[in-house]
């Protein structure tokens, strides 16, 4: 299965990456990590790419890292549909001090507009 994962370095996206790598290694998926504009509290794009590659280094998995410019939601949907991906995976959750989960705008856009399966990792 061809899986497209969005990665902006936020805590939620790191969690999504770790869990997706684990699954992809088990299932033999073909994983593409799309680096989007980094979360304000995260590292640079280059550091994010290194981080993604180091996470898969311990596995059998080969991963493609690519950079996505512009509005991440619409770019992810466009890439996934035009390049025949089977699934988009997103972190996309933020948790309030209370513990309430909210869905960020990228996740909302992808959930509403993608014609292929979307997995929201939480």
């Amino acid at each position: 299965m061809k899986v497209l994962l969005a990665f902006d370095g936020s805590e939620a996206s790191v969690d999504a990456l770790e869990r997706t790598v684990e699954r992809a290694a088990d299932a033999g998926d073909e994983l593409t990590v799309a680096i989007t504009d980094p979360d304000p509290e995260a590292d640079s794009r280059e550091a994010l790419a290194e981080r993604a590659e180091s996470l898969v280094a311990d596995t059998e998995l080969s991963v493609t890292v690519r950079h996505v410019e512009g509005q991440p939601g619409s770019e992810l949907v466009a890439i996934a549909e035009s390049e025949a991906f089977d699934e988009i995976v997103l972190g996309g959750n933020t948790t309030s001090p209370m513990g309430k989960i909210s869905i960020d705008q990228t996740a909302e856009f992808v959930l509403l507009n993608s014609h292929i399966t979307v997995t929201l990792v939480r």
């Binding site: 309030s96 209370m98 513990g99 309430k100 989960i101 909210s102 939480r122």
Partner: peptide, 15 residues
């Protein structure tokens, strides 16, 4: 609402 209260007793306690 938005994931709270959590569904399992152990998670209710942590929350």
């Amino acid at each position: 609402a938005q994931g709270i209260p959590p569904g399992k007793e152990s998670r209710v306690r942590t929350w």
